[in-house]
Simulated assay, not measured.
Amino acid sequence: MSEGRCIIVPMTTLGAIYLPQHPPEALRDVAVAADRAGLAELWLWEDCFLSGGVAASAAALAWTERLRVGIGIMPVPFRNVAATAMEIATLSRMFGDRVLPGIGHGVQDWMGQVGARAASPLTLLREYATALRSLLHGEEVTVSGRYVQLDAVRLDWPPAVIPDLYVAATGPKTLALAGEVGDATVLAGGTSPAGVTEARELSGAKDLVVFVPALPGDSAGRLVAAREKYGHAFAGLSGTAAEIAEGVRLFAAAGATRVILQPLEEDDPIAYVRWVAEEVRPLVG
């Protein structure tokens, strides 16, 4: 990055990810450390076949006082939409706006492993998100779709305050759909600032979440290794806290309203959330 360069952008929310490759029992200490350090958001992944996103988020919310917790994301083929509505409504009634529920059509190979691979993931996501939003608004829902069938279903305990629905998306069609059926769009880790701009144009999302691999110190080699491991473009940041903060501003300038920093599996998750909250956040502006 250029010496002395300063990028002025509107305030963006900065958060961190707790990777599910760490054991579930380690989450408590990480969540408490994040809360005490003043981290705004901690996002949890429901990758197959690691830890459950709903159970983990409920525990993290119960252990903390101010921390907002995102589920990024719940794969919709996994759960009946009424069950998902019940889970989100329950969390929202207990923890208010600290709950950030995310859904997506899931990784298709994983969905195939559990016998839930949809012939048309976009159709499923459209039907599911539409029904889910209606249920969370306290409506009685009857629908007979290709994938979603409900007969006069209404939540007895809908959310007192309806949460925003975060929808994960990658390709152009999914991005357009996410902007149509969701309140916010979630982009995968490794998305570049140019990719953020393109995603914002395709989705029309006012709230755009991007997961950004970010490593302290001289870690460029570790990012290269991650690119090789995951086999796709893996845009990330490394360097001092000031250099990371400048990178965050680049993503914000590209249209991201929430930049959620992502460690690698070998990073200490407690040290990481403290670093994001105490060293990077004050420099973002």
Rank of each mutant, 00 (worst) to 15 (best):
A235I: 02
A235H: 14
A235C: 13
A235G: 00
A235E: 13
G236A: 08
G236K: 01
G236H: 05
G236D: 06
G236Y: 10
G236E: 07
L237I: 13
L237R: 10
L237K: 09
L237G: 06
S238V: 02
S238T: 13
S238L: 01
G239E: 07
G239S: 09
G239I: 05
G239R: 09
T240A: 02
T240Y: 13
T240N: 14
T240F: 14
T240W: 14
A241V: 01
A241L: 04
A241T: 00
A241Q: 08
A242K: 07
A242Y: 03
A242G: 08
A242R: 11
A242E: 15
A242C: 00
A242S: 11
A242L: 09
E243Q: 10
E243I: 07
E243R: 00
E243T: 06
I244R: 01
I244N: 01
I244P: 00
A245K: 05
A245Y: 01
A245E: 08
A245M: 01
A245V: 07
A245L: 07
A245H: 04
E246W: 13
E246G: 08
E246L: 15
E246M: 15
E246S: 14
E246Y: 14
G247V: 15
G247T: 15
V248K: 07
V248S: 06
V248H: 04
R249A: 05
R249P: 12
R249V: 15
R249D: 11
R249E: 08
L250D: 05
L250Y: 04
L250R: 15
L250P: 03
F251Y: 12
F251H: 04
A252V: 06
A252F: 01
A252S: 13
A252M: 11
A252C: 05
A252L: 02
A253R: 14
A253V: 06
A254P: 15
A254M: 06
A254E: 04
A254Y: 03
G255D: 11
G255E: 12
G255F: 07
G255V: 01
G255K: 13
A256E: 13
A256N: 11
A256M: 13
A256G: 12
T257N: 08
T257W: 08
T257Q: 09
R258K: 15
R258E: 05
R258Q: 12
V259H: 10
V259G: 06
I260D: 01
I260V: 12
I260N: 00
I260F: 01
L261P: 08
L261R: 02
L261Q: 09
L261F: 00
Q262I: 03
Q262P: 00
Q262T: 10
Q262Y: 11
Q262R: 12
P263Y: 03
P263L: 03
P263T: 00
L264F: 05
E265F: 10
E265Y: 14
E265S: 10
E265M: 08
E265D: 02
E265G: 09
E265L: 11
E265I: 09
E266C: 04
E266N: 04
D267H: 10
D267Y: 03
D267V: 05
D267C: 09
D267N: 07
D267G: 00
D268R: 11
D268V: 13
D268T: 11
D268Q: 09
D268I: 12
